[in-house]
Design a protein around this nucleic acid. Structure first.
Lengths: 187, 187
DNA sequence: CAGGACATGTAACGCGTTACATGATTTG
DNA sequence: CAAATCATGTAACGCGTTACATGTCCTG
């Protein structure tokens, strides 16, 4: 399905970028929902160039270092638009290794399960706090009444969703922990 | 990391299964958080047998049809336990193609974005309703006061998490849709 | 007796990660 | 001047999906 192709086209639709710049985006907010390593990005850039969806200009950074600045072509824009506006089914499976362990909870002792869930809760809370801070920063940059028109709207959507995802996970973990503990008490 | 290995060991820790049985589990509740096709399962079963983590007996179904019933060995149980009780970091990225599109919302017209989000909301609501029904059924089978001791506790955890995941997605989509529509009104 | 479910396998291909490999630039 | 960051590439390997391939059993 080549989703990385569309991730690259989408990034380039906002402005020119080098391959290295793209890896940076995948390490920032966008990385909550999509990412790729540079070893996957560089070959994909070559492929997209051959296909005519993007093009590049070599730029000299400093005195020697060569950098390829990519931009999207009209063909690329058409391709991106087609993907963006296509309605797709919700995936049946979104893989989550922790939930796989949860499914096998009967293979653990209560104390082991409690430890596992408590650890996960602590880590998720930390991540939620981190995302909350990022969102506060964004709100200050973009102003409080963020709207469709704002250049930060995409960031805003991604951050609010990521934060709610973690918060939802946390409240579920808390409920699960109580059930595990009450089962343990009655032994 | 071979997570499929542990998925198989976990399933077998509850009782003997054929490869075909495992694919059925991946199509049921467990499939919300992990799945694999039979083309991946059968080679993995061969590998796990060679490694001594599982073993099988050939059973005749009907008069001719051969079926391999797998069970977990003591080595396999140790291996499973080690994985279950290992604390792991929360993954940085959980891929979500729809959220990638959301990040690129500025490359869409408001009406296009509205259509996309409305479609996603309808599909997520449908999935949430389906999961809610499954959960009601489970509650009737298991009784209302489900606890750690219940043989259905793993199912219960997975279903409640999946349902809350969809509900959370829906409420975020509704908020996003309002922002998109209000931006459109002011154009 | 036909269609769907049960049952098991292999092959080809693409996606994704880790590791290998190199070099320039900036900042403290 | 050392360390971190900027910058680009390839190779090997494993994971996952689609397609190819075959045959039995049960239900209406």
């Amino acid at each position: 399905m080549r989703v990385l192709k569309y991730a690259i086209l989408g990034l380039l639709d906002k402005g020119s970028l080098s391959g290295y710049d793209m890896t940076s985006h995948f390490k920032a907010e966008l990385g909550q929902f999509w990412s790729a390593k540079h070893s996957q990005i560089y070959p994909e850039l070559k492929k997209l160039t051959n296909e005519g969806f993007i093009e590049f200009k070599t730029v000299i950074q400093g005195s020697k270092l060569e950098k390829k600045m990519y931009s999207i072509t009209d063909d690329g824009k058409r391709e991106l638009h087609e993907w963006l506006t296509a309605y797709k089914p919700v995936p049946d499976t979104v893989k989550d290794e922790f939930m796989l362990k949860a499914y096998f909870i009967s293979s653990m002792k209560p104390a082991e399960a409690e430890g596992l869930f408590a650890d996960q809760l602590a880590k998720r809370k930390e991540k939620a706090a981190f995302l909350k801070e990022r969102l506060e920063t964004l709100k200050q940059e973009a102003g409080p009444g963020i709207s469709f028109r704002s250049p930060h709207f995409g960031h805003y959507l991604v951050l609010t969703r990521a934060l709610e995802r973690e918060n939802g996970y946390c409240s579920w973990l808390e409920k699960a922990l109580e059930l595990i503990k009450s089962g343990q008490a009655g032994s």
